[in-house]
């Protein structure tokens, strides 16, 4: 489904992503981990089109998307969330999801009423329907995370890139978000790449882990094998891997 080949991104003298290559099959759920500054978010930014790579290629569903714009990639089915949720703060929760529905491939064929109905459906999945008329600026971080997931899902994505969905959440909230991510993956037949710092959750939620360190991909295997790899342990020296 997704094929990343020799992807490199430099910022001045810093190589944020260095010759990274991997493939993602349809339906996979993959964890992307690494110490701070490893290049995980940059990699997701490259896949979602926020940055264009200096070299390398990205193919999605067999098509070369390396130079495609962000909105074109979104329309192809690449959705993402952010460590710091990027929502429209002066709009209500449902309006935020509604404009994702309208921005999607099918959006032009929907009336405002139909888009509202669809948005309500996606909010309901995350138990956010009761907050539909609340301004985003007034929502706590846990609900912002759910809303961002609802907005991403409203695009009917084929692949979902999740950037630290647990950041700022307490353990109980993190558990609930983790369960919801697994639930939507099954219900919507999603492929997921999930950046996460809460390793205990990510290790038991995914089938495969990519580990980045100083911009390089240093490991790509099952969670059980990855935690025993010397290079991963070294990258996390001072930190407990699991």
């Amino acid at each position: 489904m997704l094929e990343v080949s020799n992807l490199t991104k430099r910022f001045g003298g810093v190589i944020a992503v260095n010759e990274v290559s991997f493939e993602v099959e349809k339906g996979e759920i993959i964890g992307l981990i690494g110490p701070n500054g490893a290049g995980k978010s940059t990699l997701v930014n490259l896949i979602s089109g926020f940055y264009l790579p200096d070299s390398g290629k990205i193919r999605f569903l067999g098509e070369d998307i390396t130079k495609k714009k962000m909105h074109e990639r979104a329309k192809m089915g690449i959705a993402r969330t952010f460590q710091n949720p990027r929502l429209i703060s002066n709009m209500t929760a449902i309006m935020n999801v509604m404009y994702a529905v309208l921005g999607s491939e099918r959006g032009s064929k929907l009336s405002l009423v139909e888009a509202y109905g669809e948005a309500a459906y996606y909010l309901d999945i995350f138990d956010m329907l009761k907050k539909r008329d609340v301004l985003v600026a007034d929502l706590p971080i846990y609900e912002l995370r759910l809303l961002e997931l609802a907005r991403a899902l409203a695009l009917k994505p084929k692949i979902l890139l999740i950037d630290e969905a647990m950041a700022g959440l307490n353990p109980a909230e993190a558990e609930r978000v983790s369960k919801l991510i697994n639930r939507i993956r099954e219900e919507f037949d999603l492929t997921i790449i999930w950046i996460e710092h809460v390793l205990k959750i990510i290790m038991r939620s995914v089938e495969r882990i990519l580990v980045m360190h100083y911009g390089k991909l240093i490991a790509d295997d099952t969670p059980e094998k990855v935690v025993r790899m010397p290079e991963v342990v070294e990258a996390y020296i001072g930190e407990e891997v699991v």
Partner: peptide, 8 residues
Amino acid sequence: FASQLVGV
């Protein structure tokens, strides 16, 4: 930026 992410 957020608008582009939802395909606008």
